[in-house]
Design a protein around this nucleic acid. Structure first.
Lengths: 246, 246
DNA sequence: CGCGAGCTTGATGCCGATCAATGCATGTGG
DNA sequence: CCACATGCATTGATCGGCATCAAGCTCGCG
């Protein structure tokens, strides 16, 4: 990913355990006490590598596990029968993938790696079992599901009532905020996704995304060099998002 | 609600228990075995009446309970700082409200009754407790949360990539399908919400909703008399949703 | 070095927003 | 019981933001 304050490369030096993972403050283990954490280590024992462009799972696949992004970057997308598809989210280190699968025992979206990535495999039936004995884990898991619902509602607000500039501004602020929580710069980032994928997520065409980037640059809000973005005026972006158009 | 095959009024004759509630096939108890169901009865002991126009909870309220709609009809909406707001869903009998609150111990949306309604109160901490001992209940609860996530993704697809006609057609088909599952007619319904609320949900202005209703009527797909809708050509509506515009 | 995927930019057109007026149903007070 | 107010819905006229179509451009890579 970007230039990290704590290099993600070093992660590999730690042993394969949630209790010693430096993502534990961002991932499933948030807030767990030591004994609970130890139990989680027994649960999450395998990893999976997903090269850029490959899918972690596809719509229709039988659901067995959740996945925590360890390194890398993913998109999830749903598609209609007619082939249209919609990016429903972008996931980075510490974020969970696969929650959609619980409802039907089948996944209902595709998860695609946007760069070479690694995930921790969390067998779902074992997670349910473990969360019966460890209430903190249970509670934490529920919170994560609920957070996803709240996030989705935010995206609906964006798609339903914001204009192109507001959407892109909100998107950039959200991305940088999440990157910052992971020790990356708040002001510069490399986009892992294409203009088309951003457009799909934001309900815009890729040309509109491109034009809006250019406009932001002209207005001195950003510097844009293809996928390298520098945020020059974060306050200006925030103003864009919060000021009603109507 | 609409003319019911099984009148909701009669529900009041049954005792206050999930195990004898005629919504149990649609609500939290789906698929629970007898012993689990009996436990659920101990959990859900109180009801709450919400008159039309009143809120069940508001964004910012502390979260304590989930609510299962027993009779009536709700909308949920989120709002941005600037006052814009977005309807994120409409809930009818058997559907759960309040899942958004788990993430933060505060609700992040408003739930408003669109007609005089009654909900069953499900104290959340007790639900967590109970679901530790009853794995079916645990699993069912997880499924419901996951289903909400999947539903939200569907709405994103709608908001991000469909045109006005497709959105309204999809909305109507979804409504009638849910009503049908509750024993109501598949072809005629009374809308409980205004054009403006439909528009907010679908990311359209109320005039557009109204015009689209009129258009559907002209094309012989619907009959529209204010809030009374009759679906004349369901196949035609489905064709609208599934045929890609691009 | 040249190819191709992805990005930018321009010209044009259309869908849905906006503004505005009228119609319709419900309810309330004279 | 009618008159009028109020909230919601319909319909028309116009406008504007974003989509669409169409070239070029950039950069990484074989």
């Amino acid at each position: 990913m970007q230039q990290a304050v704590v290099s993600p490369i070093k992660l590999e030096a730690f042993k394969v355990a949630c209790s010693s993972c430096n993502l534990r403050e961002l991932c499933l283990p948030v807030g767990l006490s030591a004994p609970d954490l130890e139990q989680l280590d027994t649960l999450v024992s395998t990893r999976r590598t997903v090269p850029r462009g490959e899918t972690l799972f596809r719509s229709g696949d039988t659901f067995q596990s959740l996945y925590a992004v360890r390194t890398g970057f993913f998109k999830t997308c749903v598609s209609a029968e007619d082939g249209r598809d919609q990016v429903t989210g972008f996931q980075m280190a510490g974020e969970l993938l696969g929650l959609d699968g619980i409802s039907n025992d089948r996944h209902s979206c595709d998860a695609v790696a946007l760069e070479d990535s690694q995930v921790c495999v969390i067998p779902y039936s074992q997670l349910e079992e473990l969360s019966r004995d460890f209430t903190e884990l249970q509670h934490q898991f529920h919170k994560i599901m609920s957070r996803e619902i709240v996030r989705d509602h935010g995206v609906m607000l964006l798609l339903g009532s914001m204009r192109a500039e507001e959407r892109l501004a909100a998107f950039l602020l959200n991305l940088t905020q999440r990157l910052q929580a992971r020790g990356f710069s708040a002001s510069s980032l490399i986009l892992r996704m294409t203009r088309e994928e951003i457009g799909s997520y934001l309900g815009l065409k890729l040309e509109t995304v491109s034009r809006t980037f250019s406009k932001f640059q002209d207005e001195g809000l950003l510097e844009v060099k293809q996928r390298a973005i520098t945020i020059v005026d974060p306050a200006g972006l925030k103003r864009l998002v919060n000021s009603a158009s109507n």
